[in-house]
Design a protein around this nucleic acid. Structure first.
Lengths: 217, 217
DNA sequence: CTTTCCCATCAGGAAAAACCTGATTTCTTG
DNA sequence: CAAGAAATCAGGTTTTTCCTGATGGGAAAG
């Protein structure tokens, strides 16, 4: 009897333990390994040759998004199921682009994860509420729809400077004085920054900056 | 034989499932309930009278920090163990201040959670690497933080409500519609909130709210 | 060598929000 | 009952925001 091999990648031990206990009764599934660091995903996959990798997005050193991209490039035969928190979906589009096989949220019933594994083993894909069709239209219409991090990196030097000052609470007028330019110029930069970072309010800008360590809370 | 009652608060079902399977062999522990929303923690605790609440920080609607504060106020006899991700520690100080009984990271061995439960049931406290001694020095040296907390607690209920909404990025107009009051009233509240919290800009307000776990970044 | 694109710079003007003061009502609390 | 806090709203001035338009410089592409 053939056993399907599964590799778990999650830095929260309780999650991997939960998945293990969940799969105990399934004699056709075998968890061959477990890693808690994104940097270990690719080497472990090469070593163990699993059929499926179940992976979190948020992991130390290398994120699940990067790990998925590395897997897609070096081990295209491996099916990837992303198992993550619901508050993460900023990266979902990027993951779709790399061609993951499934997506399950940690707040859903854990049985959904088993269902997703079966679905993927049958050659299908398993996305719950994240209807790929709906995603694809967004993918196509937004040519530059990239992750938050990438958007920040696309800011010009001047914009990055003003982004940081704005997120830190400096007023337009203050920034203009600091940089020896017109407040109107700063305003225009701000407008462009909002546009590039896909935010609509100063608060969103601040929170984004804090999330990415641009400023401290 | 007396069974200790435990309430689980985590919006990730795989985590609560993992904890359940972890505690199966312990006949002296009984998981009496499970909630996935911070807003449900206090009512469920009042209803089920658990000895221990094991709680995540990041939950929908009401954060674990707020829930812990509510518990400390209304159910001071309940022991709180925070079980959370390592990337959350910006709230740890605030939690220490409310007097939690334990702190365990999800990336640690799940057995640590059991150990923490035993420790707390024995009347002790369980902090792993988060040495309270080290924390206390930080607590003492940052007196400004303490006064910040006190200032937040001095807000009236209505002000607290509007504080959260403002810090989360809602506009005056939007808040007015939500609460069915005049924008002018919201404006006045905002003015008073700024005054009470000693802030001068919306950004300062947002960062303060994030520092104290009122909202998530 | 143009043409195109991005960057940095600034301005105008309508709309929105901020700022501060004053005011009423209800409810609690000493 | 008097004092005070809480919640409600308005007026009017000042400031900021929002969006559009515009210019010049430089780099990359054709």
């Amino acid at each position: 009897m053939h056993k399907y091999k599964i590799l778990l990648a999650d830095d929260h031990k309780v999650v991997t333990a939960g998945i293990r206990s969940l799969m105990q009764r399934r004699t056709d599934l075998c968890i061959v390994g477990e890693v808690g660091d994104g940097a270990d995903v690719l080497p472990k996959t090469c070593e163990l040759k699993p059929d499926i990798v179940i992976m979190d997005i948020s992991m130390p050193h290398v994120s699940g998004v990067e790990a998925a991209q590395a897997l897609a490039e070096h081990c295209p035969q491996v099916k990837i199921i992303i198992y993550t928190m619901h508050s993460d979906p900023r990266f979902i589009l990027e993951l779709f682009r790399t061609g993951i096989a499934g997506l399950v949220m940690k707040e859903e019933d854990p049985q959904e994860l088993i269902a997703a594994v079966d679905c993927v083993l049958a050659g299908g894909t398993a996305f719950g509420k994240y209807n790929p069709q709906r995603m694809v239209s967004q993918l196509l219409q937004s040519t530059a729809d990239v992750s938050e991090t990438e958007r920040i990196q696309e800011l010009s030097p001047r914009e990055a400077e003003i982004f940081k000052a704005l997120a830190d609470g400096h007023s337009i007028k203050h920034i203009a004085l600091e940089l020896h330019i017109s407040p109107k110029t700063v305003e225009t930069h701000k407008y462009n920054i909002f546009d590039k970072l896909h935010v609509e309010t100063l608060t969103e800008l601040t929170k984004l900056a804090i999330r990415h360590g641009v400023i401290l809370a």
